[in-house]
């Protein structure tokens, strides 16, 4: 595989992007933030354009450019927006466009799981904590941004480090990916033979097997698939249903494949994931528990109040 892009062009784009991000970082007081954001966005668009021109015959679909532009632009706003709530909302935008990219990679289950878990659950927790941990402004006072939100820490050093890393990470773009051969998909038949009940159900729904007949199983409880098709056993003897006669919807969907991979090939890791989540829950409960200090009088008043509320 040849070069996608000239090295000097790649490094030039990295330097320009770094400059744009550097300008876009909050600096306290007046800063050319808008200019920087525009510059970084321009470089981003330029990089995507170059990638598009260099793609050759194997173009990614146009949605790729739309989703990655929205996602990366929103990511830039996450790291530059002085208000934490807005940064969290921009992060939701990044999550949604990453979900779009997952859809383009035909990972439907992960796309929706990402949106549900990240945008739906994790981000709501973040928003709650942001609201809890921000002091309400005094009455009549204009809401002031905290100093630690409006000025960045070591912007130059961080940006240089970051874009050096980016230049290294993307250096494969002009070296090519010679040692990474693409894989072959496991054939649908091979996967379906591992799911005899699915095959049987689908065939029965379409009236291809009668009651009393069932899909023949081999010693490993897999459906018997030969070149002649899937083997059916029954009182009337054996027969084969050829692949051309199979119902059109007899396919392994993405969720089925992911579930198969998860439960058949990595059963132990699910247990470990469960233990990790349990430990995190326990840790969070222990960490955030707070002893409320109340003197006797306050306790008495609180009990009275609760009693009134309960009696009503």
């Amino acid at each position: 595989m040849g070069q996608f892009i000239q090295p000097f062009l790649m490094f030039g784009l990295c330097v320009l992007g770094g400059g744009g991000v550097l300008l876009a970082l909050p600096r306290g007081g007046k800063s050319p933030q808008v200019l920087g954001a525009l510059g970084a966005g321009l470089v981003l668009g330029l990089a995507l354009l170059v990638l598009g021109l260099k793609a050759g015959e194997q173009h990614p679909v146009p949605y790729f450019y739309i989703f990655s532009f929205i996602g990366l632009g929103a990511a830039l706003r996450v790291i530059t927006h002085p208000r934490p709530v807005y940064a969290a909302l921009y992060f939701v935008l990044t999550v949604i466009s990453t979900g779009g990219l997952f859809l383009l990679l035909s990972a439907e289950f992960m796309a929706f799981a990402l949106i549900i878990v990240y945008a739906g659950a994790i981000l709501i927790t973040y928003l709650f904590v942001i609201m809890l941990a921000t002091q309400a402004p005094e009455e009549g006072e204009i809401e002031a941004l905290a100093d630690y939100d409006t000025s960045a820490r070591e912007p130059v050093g961080a940006t240089v480090t970051g874009f050096l890393l980016l230049a290294l990470l993307t250096s494969f773009m002009f070296k090519g990916l010679p040692n990474v051969p693409p894989g072959q998909a496991a054939s649908t038949e091979a996967l379906l033979s591992g799911m005899p009940r699915l095959v049987e159900q689908s065939l029965a729904e379409h009236g291809l097997i009668k009651s009393g007949e069932h899909v023949a199983l081999d010693a490993g409880k897999h459906a018997v698939m030969t070149d002649a098709g899937v083997k059916i056993e029954g009182a009337a003897g054996e027969r084969y249903i050829a692949k051309s006669e199979w119902p059109k919807d007899l396919e392994v969907t993405n969720i089925q494949r992911v579930g198969f991979d998860l439960l058949r090939d990595h059963p132990g890791t699910i247990e470990i994931a469960g233990v990790i989540l349990l430990m995190a829950m326990l840790g969070a409960v222990v960490l955030s528990r707070k002893q409320v200090q109340m003197d006797e009088e306050a306790k008495r008043l609180q009990a009275l109040k609760l009693g009134e509320g309960g009696g009503a």
Binding site: L72, P84, A146, E154, A158
Partner: peptide, 15 residues
């Protein structure tokens, strides 16, 4: 690029 932006954000933001 997404990873780099995240890294820069982690290094520069103080919140």
């Amino acid at each position: 690029i997404l990873f780099t932006l995240g890294l820069i954000g982690f290094l520069t933001r103080r919140n």
